[in-house]
Design a protein around this nucleic acid. Structure first.
Length: 887
RNA sequence: UGAAGCGUAGCUCAGUGGUAGAGCAUCCCCUUCACACGGGGAAGGUCGCAGGUUCGACACCUGUCGCUUCAACCA
């Protein structure tokens, strides 16, 4: 009976008439912080529930999508806490990487220039505070160039500011994160562990460095990974271009990238294609540039596409890279890192030509131009007679719509450039990656196919180096030989205790700073890691990995990874890969994929579309609990329409909980033993509801726990039970029997409220804790530390027959319906009513007759048995109303 | 081109091999002693379409259409 305590009533007048959301939210936030409600206890032996919270990119803009998915995670965290778990719920900030750099560049109107000297103490004012973005664009002010160090300092300044904004929002929406576990992906701890991760993979032979064709973004001037690419449909055109064959003859290739003609290193066709079989082993001569290139067959060619024969360039796309590699073709790189045509000389060994003067004259026209301009110029030239006097362009370009690969944050298509990059070897581990993926429980299950799809189709190892500034340094130095040539094949790495290091300012062991960049000395690696290299160890950032083995053991693998579905191929994939490579473990037991928030037109909300809804106004309008309600109703993985209508309902629910609590706790009565049949029947139904709700949570379906609980609360409790026992539970009672019956109702009402507050606590933490603290602190100071309701709470109570309750509800509804039909007030007394019903229903109704009559103001109830009636159906044979008191 | 999810009332969404569900919106009624930020009621659907399995299908199977997404193709 311990849990089934009787509580004292309250003075109703001492409570506010309605829930004042802003006041309660502010007050409880302070209370929770003061009581350290959500702190993880590292020394506790309780079972843990560890959450690998997504560190949001601190971009300075907040939108409802943030609230939506983070609230869903918080709901699970609160449930687990109420199950007695030691919840590990950190918050990190992803402030390392390109998005941050870009925001800092715009915010201060600066750019990083590694050649600038450091200016100590430089603190620029944000440019946008003095002029609008439009003004800034119109004035075309030059960006200020900052040294790498000054630039990074400004990144830190802005991220700290942006993080405060997020923190405020998280607190408002009631996330129960432990702020002592706050981290940033750029802080020393994260940098240290990222570099440790590199060292571990390096030692295990999973990291390699290579000078090879790599995906390159010309705007950001950095390498990017396959996972960061996206397709965009663009207009393009097929150009039919005639090549001559050495020793006579010709053929026509089709290409969408004529500007790469100077970079042509081969021609290929399908081996089964009779049209071109005779070309095998011959060489073709490119138009304009006169380069002799080998002609070879390849299964990869589609006969029915274009003309069935095509030119291979270094490099137009990934297939070019494959042909280049497999056929050991020459390398003719013409596009530079900035996306402009670099100077090349025809008539050399590298760029052979049958007519160097003509070739160089042609190339001179495009040198220094970008890809788009070059394409136009090359097409123009192809339309003129070439060195052989013939026009190579055989037909006007045929426009097509085709998918082009872009870096997801870039504005120009990616190019393949030969650069030196660090890679993590993953292609040879696909099967194991798939196996590890299937050891994890995916919610919803079907999301695993996205992981499978991606893993199976992986085509390039993970390029982890980025030519950027605000990131975690790759902890490597390279020796310089006597002539000052960098020995890339002899990388020097630090020891773990030296970490974190910045190779651009720290020295490798055995060298002095004076030897930097000197022959016989060393150079530091200037590249930083892909941000995912750090994000992929968020579980280890929390568990501290090898820095604290006991803590790591306690927390790793974590229990839950919440995340969005568009980053399954990046964040989820890389995290699984890292845990596998480091420790042959899965990083978490469950991965929960949240859906997107769609605007009312069912489009994904995104900053670029400009349809983003800012969350704070809605919290102001409906209250945090109401916004949480909207998030809590959405099932994992399903996209959800932004709908303030749902928030309105959430607010109404919160209000109802508040008022029902107030009513049930009013001071006019003391609680006694629950003895009345209706009360016992209600408790039986409530017990079943508690079990169902917990079952839904355990099945990772919190939305259905909320839906079911709400439905039950509304229909069985406030609309029925409360009304049925209202007259019995209020007022002075004369006889002992009446007093006992009253005390029974009062107790059941209060126990009901206690239970509902716990059931709703994960979803509506403010309203429930506010009401909880009026009366139930005997159980725990906060509802958020109470145990989630279970059948155990009902131990010692002989719960009644739930059918009795259903009969009472049905009778109440039938009478109300009749009153409404007769257009009389629900409060109108009924002097005499004759009900016809099934004998069993009559039997049940007899048991709860007093309560039903009390709720419906029946003075004289007559019951007639009729076996033809369905159970719990009532036919009203006769009804007489009392006088209309209003009249 | 392949795969996945979705398609149920005007809207947002539940749902189960056995008579179609909720809330919102609409309409009507009721100022009732926790709550008018309330209460009671009514109306509203061939469950995308077509076949099949079954005594019975909104549910299971096959096909098909539409929307969304993921992936492949990218010469």
């Amino acid at each position: 009976m311990a849990k089934f305590q009787k509580v004292q009533g309250l003075e109703l007048n001492s409570l506010p008439k309605n829930m004042e959301f802003p006041e309660v939210e502010t007050r409880l936030q302070e209370t929770w912080a003061r009581e350290k409600l959500y702190e993880f206890d590292e020394s506790s032996s309780k079972p843990t529930f560890a959450i690998d919270t997504p560190p949001p990119t601190v971009s300075g803009s907040l939108h409802v999508g943030h609230i939506f998915s983070y609230t869903q995670t918080d709901i699970m965290a609160r449930y687990q806490r109420m199950q007695g778990k030691n919840v590990f719920y950190p918050m990190g900030w992803d402030d390392n990487g390109l998005p941050t750099e870009r925001r800092v560049q715009n915010y201060f109107h600066i750019r990083c220039d590694a050649n600038q000297p450091y200016e100590p103490g430089l603190e620029l004012e944000p440019i946008l505070s003095t002029m609008s973005e439009k003004e800034l664009q119109e004035k075309r002010l030059p960006q200020k160039n900052l040294s790498r160090k000054n630039f990074i300092e400004h990144c830190h300044r802005l991220t700290v500011q942006d993080e405060e904004l997020f923190k405020k929002l998280w607190s408002r929406i009631g996330l129960s994160v432990d702020w002592k576990l706050e981290y940033a992906t750029i802080d020393d701890h994260s940098r240290k562990l990222s570099q440790m991760s590199f060292l571990d993979l390096f030692k295990k032979g999973h990291m390699y460095q290579v000078q090879a064709p790599t995906l390159w973004d010309c705007d950001f001037q950095t390498a990017v990974a396959q996972a960061e690419l996206e397709d965009r449909e663009l207009p393009g055109a097929f150009h039919d271009i005639e090549f001559e064959v050495e020793g006579g003859g010709n053929f026509t290739i089709a290409t969408t990238r004529p500007e790469l003609l100077p970079a042509c290193v081969g021609v290929t066709y399908h081996p089964a294609d009779p049209r071109y079989a005779s070309l095998k082993g011959k060489r073709a001569i490119t138009p304009l540039f006169g380069a002799p290139v080998p002609i070879f067959p390849s299964e990869l060619v589609q006969m029915d596409k274009g003309t069935g024969i095509l030119m291979v360039c270094t490099f137009g796309d990934q297939t070019d890279v494959q042909w280049w590699r497999e056929n050991k073709l020459e390398t003719r790189q013409i596009i530079g890192k900035a996306g402009l045509m670099i100077p090349v000389q025809f008539g050399t060994k590298e760029f052979p030509s049958t007519n160097p003067d003509f070739a160089n004259a042609c190339f001179a026209k495009i040198q220094g131009r970008n890809v788009k301009q070059s394409q136009k110029l090359v097409v123009e030239m192809l339309g003129q007679p070439g060195a052989n006097g013939k026009v190579a362009l055989k037909a006007p370009p045929k426009p097509i719509q085709h998918a082009v690969k872009f870096y997801e944050k870039g504005d120009r298509p990616v190019e393949f450039l030969i650069t030196r990059q660090w890679f993590a070897r993953l292609l040879d581990k696909k099967e194991k990656l798939l196996e590890y993926g299937s050891k994890i429980k995916w919610h919803p299950e079907f999301m695993e196919v996205r992981y499978k799809n991606w893993t199976e189709n992986l085509g390039i190892d993970w390029c982890v180096s980025r030519q950027r500034f605000f990131g975690v340094s790759i902890p490597v130095w390279y020796p310089l030989d006597d002539k000052g040539v960098i020995q890339y094949d002899k990388p020097m790495v630090p020891t773990v205790d030296q970490l974190p290091v910045d190779p651009m300012s720290d020295c490798p062991e055995g060298y002095t700073e004076a030897q930097r960049n000197k022959p016989g000395g060393f150079v530091g690696e200037s590249d930083v890691f892909d941000t995912w290299f750090t994000s992929s160890i968020t579980p280890q950032l929390g568990s501290h990995w090898e820095l604290n083995p006991a803590r790591h053991k306690k927390l790793f693998p974590m229990d839950m990874r919440p995340q969005a579905h568009e980053i399954i191929r990046t964040w989820a994939f890389y995290t699984i890969a890292k845990a596998m490579l480091h420790e042959e473990k899965i990083p978490w037991k469950h991965i929960v994929i949240s859906g997107w928030v769609l605007d009312p037109d069912r489009k994904k909300m995104s900053k670029s579309k400009g349809n983003v809804v800012t969350p704070t106004a809605h919290i102001d309008e409906f209250g945090a609990d109401a916004v949480r309600y909207w998030s809590g109703l959405a099932r994992y993985g399903s996209d959800t329409t932004f709908d303030t209508g749902i928030m309105k309902i959430g607010r109404r629910l919160a209000m109802k909980i508040f008022n029902a609590s107030k009513f049930s706790l009013q001071s006019s009565a003391d609680a006694g033993d629950v003895t009345e049949p209706l009360d016992l029947a209600f408790l039986a139904k409530l017990r079943a509801q508690c079990e169902d709700a917990a079952k839904a949570f355990e099945a990772w379906e919190p939305a259905s726990a909320l839906m079911e609980t709400e439905k039950f609360f509304w229909s069985n409790f406030t609309d029925s039970y409360v009304e049925l026992v209202k007259s019995r539970s209020l007022g002075e009672k004369a006889t002992d029997a009446e007093k006992r019956a009253k005390a029974s109702a009062v107790h059941a009402l209060r126990f009901g409220v206690r239970t509902f507050l716990k059931l709703f606590a994960p979803f509506l933490p403010y309203t429930t804790d506010e009401a909880w603290r009026w009366a139930f602190t005997d159980e725990s100071a906060s509802v958020h530390h109470a145990r989630y309701p279970s059948a155990a709470d009902f131990a010692g109570i002989e719960c009644g027959n739930p059918e009795i309750f259903d009969t009472a509800m049905a009778a109440q509804a039938a009478v109300n319906q009749q009153k409404t039909h007769s257009k009389v007030s629900i409060a109108r007394a009924i002097t005499h009513i004759k009900l016809k019903a099934h004998p069993e229903t009559i039997k049940n109704l007899t048991i709860v007759k007093g309560d039903v009559c009390g709720a419906t103001k029946i003075e004289k109830l007559e019951m007639v048995e009729d076996a033809t009636q369905e159970k719990n159906a009532f036919a009203i044979e006769h009804i007489e109303y009392g006088p209309d008191l209003k009249a």
